[in-house]
């Protein structure tokens, strides 16, 4: 299992490397010049100043040289400095990552808890009234993009309840209430898709397990509802749910970019969003690498969870 995790981690590093190279080259291909965008508003900027700034940032070098220079730094943990204010990318990310971490975990928790409850409730009486109405909830959760759902929630609450979430971020340590007031809506919007796909996956996999031979055999021995449903059926139907979870983690990560900007949350998402607008290449790259790493780690954890749930899964 350790060996397997190591091999997976190795693959993960390879994936992140390839993503880095791709994003690096893609950024250079995007029209717009980092220096010109930064200096655009400043009055009386001369071409020399632009050239000087370009040279200072190393952007006059050939793209490949820039790439190797960046990779050389990245291997030692130095992702360079932000073009805009010169602060270290590592430091910026370290400030922002916990905020996004909290948002992502809240979204995931909402998705899992609601998803599991809805999925189980639907499977107990398939095609009943509860199942039908819950299916409506899941389908909407899947079809509505998270940013739109976020906007919808804000608008609805503002119009009908006269309440809107605070726009100034406070850490959970300084003001937990305020923090949650700001984070809950975007977490809900982000978690909706995860909730919906978990609910649907759990429902179908539970229904299948409930029809399975071994569950029938458990009942043939006179086991009660608790043993059958909670001990045998649920655990057996969890595997596909974990697969969905791994995929949904990616969706949640991607969703943070826009939702953090909408809700004024100073996390990785809004950092990336601003950096892209400013062509702040080092920051964009740093963020992408961190996003990639989180996604890879989540999926390794999901794969290892298979082994915890199912003894048949052998890591080779």
């Amino acid at each position: 299992m350790v060996e397997y995790a190591l091999r997976r981690a190795l693959y993960g590093v390879l994936v992140i490397f390839m993503v880095t190279v791709f994003v690096f080259l893609a950024l250079r291909a995007v029209p717009g010049d980092a220096v010109r965008i930064q200096l655009a508003d400043a009055p009386g900027v001369t071409e020399e100043q632009i050239a000087e700034r370009t040279a200072a940032l190393g952007l006059d070098q050939p793209v490949l040289t820039q790439l190797f220079h960046f990779l050389g730094g990245a291997i030692t943990g130095d992702f360079g400095a932000s073009f805009s204010d010169g602060s270290s990318v590592g430091g910026l990310i370290a400030d922002r990552l916990p905020v996004t971490g909290q948002l992502g975990l809240m979204a995931l928790a909402i998705g899992v808890v609601l998803g599991v409850v809805i999925g189980m409730a639907s499977a107990v009486r398939p095609n009943g009234l509860l199942d039908q109405s819950l299916r409506l909830v899941s389908v909407s959760g899947l079809s509505v993009p998270s940013f739109w759902l976020g906007l919808l929630l804000v608008t609805y609450l503002a119009v009908y309840a006269g309440w809107s979430p605070p726009l100034i971020y406070q850490g959970p340590a300084e003001n937990l209430g305020g923090n949650l007031a700001q984070m809950t809506l975007p977490a809900l919007a982000l978690g909706a898709a995860a909730m919906a796909s978990i609910a649907r996956m759990l429902r179908s996999s539970l229904l299948e397990v409930l029809q399975s031979d071994h569950l029938r055999t458990v009942r043939a021995r006179g086991a009660g509802r608790g043993t059958t449903l909670f001990k045998h059926a649920t655990r057996n139907s969890l595997l596909p749910v974990f697969t969905v979870l791994g995929l949904q983690a990616g969706g949640i990560l991607g969703g943070t970019v826009i939702l953090e900007s909408i809700f004024g949350i100073p996390g990785m998402g809004s950092l990336t969003f601003e950096a892209v607008q400013m062509r702040d290449y080092p920051v964009v790259l740093g963020c992408v690498i961190v996003y990639g790493a989180v996604f890879v780690v989540v999926n390794i954890v999901v794969d290892l969870m298979y082994g915890v749930i199912d003894p048949r899964v052998r890591y080779r």
Binding site: H214, R216, T217, N236, R312
Partner: peptide, 10 residues
């Protein structure tokens, strides 16, 4: 089928 009649996870 004794394989599918036993719970594989326990």
């Amino acid at each position: 089928d004794p394989m599918s009649s036993l719970d594989p996870l326990y």
